[in-house]
Design a protein around this nucleic acid. Structure first.
Length: 670
RNA sequence: AGCGGGGUAGGGCAGCCAGGUUAGCCCGCCGGGCUCAUAACCCGGAGGUCGGAGGUUCAAAUCCUCCCCCCGCUACCA
């Protein structure tokens, strides 16, 4: 194969940038964990490897979450970035640079790329008449419009398609169109946006996709299909406030669409890494040197952004950037048959997981059930099975019985082999075969199979020990026992190399017991432990999970409760009063904000509340509500918000909390 | 609706692209063995009309056609 000719090139490993409106769950972690396995693998292989990613922190969902928490988007992402960075360290993710889209290097790089796209003639401005909701003060994507289908009369046809008859629609053709958020009839307004002229790259992209034989089938077919359907110019600006300001003349109030922003982070994170290490130009070795390989690990929803949009952006700079060498995608991890959902409490989050079990138990299980060809289902049953049967019984026990035997019968020294018979010799060559097999599988990003193959080696080891019965031969013919344990020790040695990418923390322990250096390479798997080499006292590497599935689920729920519980002192700091809404008006330029003037007894206070999609200003006047009055004031959309009103949230529905009968404004709530 | 991916023993998967011995592997289950080892390990067994229906072929899980089910995408909800 062509790729086989490439020796010792540079490898850039990247993982999809987690969107940090929340802490990631186990499914979000998959691409990052997979990338970590591969990064560790390439480092062991002696390739010059760089592993980068970062927090994706711009865009609407961040703004929405910030409003919900009554803080600024920057405060939200500052906090979450810090939390998430620490969590990735705990997960032993070996990033060389984990950065963020708010980094100055990134913002400057994105601006420069945008300007270069404009200079090269790939940006054009277009004005469109788009459906607009006056009440929500926003342009409505097709799916935010509902109405009667002109073909079949279905009442709730969406702007893009009727779910009843399946026909594709255009929003303006709907009878009695409505904004799905507030129910208002949309008007048509002119939207001006800057577009990236994707179609100009159709031929080059086709050549790239067809020429990259390495792309996994799903990514490749999907991309080819999109190309066949025809590319469309893509608007690259948004009317959001939170994001990287669009550098185009006349686009002063617009920001760059987060996807175009985030996807360029792969480059800027590399630049930033070398800047930090005082080697300013070396990033170019990864992005322009044709021997360098760049691997992307992503979820299946991300394919077009990595196979088409990113390559097109890079081409559009006219700078001959390296295009993706491989794009490894995973399908979804679901939880007991359901999709992860923060609000419905389905799934496991990466902070909770580590409170329950050591990181390698999770790393092992996640790679073992990594959804590669289809979605896979995480259940506690599967977790228990993988940890107990594979990690503990098969792998852990094989290592332990081998090392303990050497402790006990050979004074902790690797025995001296003599006159190995054919079974022993076969075993030694099996080790080499297995190491090679794991190597090839990892090279092809077949992580699950590689891990299976590695565990298989310990299974073979167990079988070998049972056949050789050293506990008998040690009495009858000690040299035979010595030979057996010499061979078994070599299996352990090989395992201490090839499993490092998967379970690095455990491997550090194992190599400590084996008195082996923390620094080692893949080829060390082929080098035998020399006779006489002293090892330390064997310690079990794993313990079994002795809990039922139900126990584990309730442990998880307890952890959730604990992290959510606050002390009485904390609670008593919150000063909640009954307030009466005196005035209410929409905040200009904001989609979901109302400015409220509230009588809290001793004074009138201003609140900016994210409830415009649920309440009309005129319906609020005179209402009594619960108000937190001692929050630090905050600027929201340029208005100082002094207090916060309380509301219940149910799957996106917002309902204000009112006293069941009127009480004097200012009454304390406790 | 279109497109992509998937539907193989109770559960999880490989095999399919280059059709061909009794359809493999892991877990679980049943029976046996062993005792170095964390009630660990090893051997044997039961269990599948390979989503359904047609077709091509001497021969199909594997190729073709149609249908059913699950997941994802379809681009201004990252």
């Amino acid at each position: 194969m062509l790729w086989g000719c490439i020796e010792l090139g540079k490898v850039l490993v990247t993982a999809a940038w987690p969107y940090i409106n929340h802490i990631p769950h186990l499914g979000n972690l998959l691409p990052i964990l997979s990338a970590d396995v591969i990064a560790r693998y390439y480092r062991l292989k002696g390739e010059e490897t760089l592993f980068v990613s970062g927090s994706d922190e711009h865009g609407t969902p961040i703004e929405v979450e910030a409003i919900r928490q009554n803080i600024s988007p920057k405060e939200l992402t500052d906090r979450n970035h810090e939390i998430v960075s620490l969590l990735f360290k705990k997960w032993a993710i070996s990033f060389d640079n984990y950065t963020r889209t708010e980094s100055e290097v990134h913002k400057e790089f994105v601006r420069n790329v945008m300007l270069s796209l404009e200079k090269n003639g790939y940006i054009f401005v277009k004005e469109d008449e788009l459906p607009y909701c006056e009440r929500c003060q926003r342009f409505l994507p097709d799916r935010f419009i509902e109405g009667k289908c002109p073909y079949c009369g279905y009442e709730r046809a969406r702007g893009d398609q009727c779910e009843q008859c399946g026909r594709l629609l255009e929003p303006i053709k709907l009878i009695e169109p409505k904004c799905t958020v507030c129910g208002e009839k949309p008007t048509v307004k002119i939207a001006k946006h800057w577009y990236f002229d994707m179609p100009k790259f159709a031929d080059k992209l086709l050549a790239y996709i067809e020429g990259n034989k390495r792309l996994p089938e799903n990514a490749r077919n999907f991309s080819l299909n999109l190309l066949k359907e025809g590319l469309r110019p893509r608007p690259i600006t948004r009317d959001n406030k939170w994001g990287i300001p669009a550098p185009f003349a006349g686009a002063e109030n617009k920001t760059i669409y987060v996807w175009f922003d985030a996807v360029l982070g792969y480059v800027s994170a590399t630049i930033e890494y070398f800047k930090k290490h005082g080697d300013g130009d070396r990033w170019r070795e990864y992005w322009f040197d044709k021997n360098a390989r760049i691997l992307y690990f992503i979820g299946k929803d991300n394919i077009p952004f990595h196979t088409l949009i990113l390559p097109a952006l890079l081409m559009a700079t006219h700078e001959d950037y390296n295009l993706p060498w491989n794009v490894c995608t995973n399908e979804w991890l679901i939880f007991a048959g359901q999709k992860s959902s923060k609000s419905r409490r389905v799934g496991i989050w990466i902070d909770e997981a580590l409170e329950m079990f050591p990181v390698d138990y999770w790393r092992y299980t996640l790679i073992a059930i990594r959804p590669e060809t289809k979605d896979s289902d995480f259940t506690w049953k599967v977790f228990i099975e993988k940890v107990n049967a594979d990690l503990n019984d098969t792998l852990g026990n094989f290592i332990h019985r081998t090392l303990k035997f050497i402790n006990t019968y050979f004074d902790s020294a690797i025995p001296d082999p003599m006159d190995l018979d054919s079974l022993d010799k076969n075993m030694l060559s099996t080790i080499i075969e297995k190491v090679k097999a794991v190597d090839e599988l990892l090279e092809n990003c077949q992580l699950q199979a590689a891990l299976r193959e590695a565990i298989e080696l310990s299974r073979i080891g167990n079988k070998y020990l049972n056949e050789r019965k050293p506990w008998e031969t040690i009495k009858l013919n000690p040299q035979v026992a010595a030979n057996t344990l010499y061979v078994s020790a070599q299996i352990v040695k090989a395992l201490s190399v090839i499993l490092e990418p998967f379970i690095p923390i455990t491997i550090r322990k194992l190599r400590e017991i084996l008195s082996l250096s923390e620094k080692f390479s893949w080829d060390d798997a082929y080098k035998p432990l020399p006779p006489g080499h002293k090892i330390k006292k064997a310690e079990p590497l794993f313990t079994k999970v002795r809990f039922s599935e139900e126990d584990l689920q309730s442990m998880l729920e307890k952890i959730r409760e604990r992290t959510e519980k606050i002390s009485y002192e904390d609670f008593s700091k919150v000063d909640i009063r009954v307030g009466r809404i005196v005035e209410a008006e929409a905040v200009p330029g904001a989609q979901n904000l109302l400015k409220l003037l509230i009588d809290v007894g001793d004074s009138l206070k201003t609140a900016v509340a994210g409830i415009a999609k649920h309440y009309r200003p005129e319906d609020l006047k005179g209402r009594y509500v619960a108000v937190v009055v001692n929050l630090r004031p905050r600027q929201v959309f340029g208005i100082e918000s002094e207090v916060m009103i309380l509301a219940a949230e149910d799957e996106g529905k917002i309902v204000l909390l009112e006293p069941s009968e009127p009480v004097r404004p200012g009454s304390r709530v406790r």
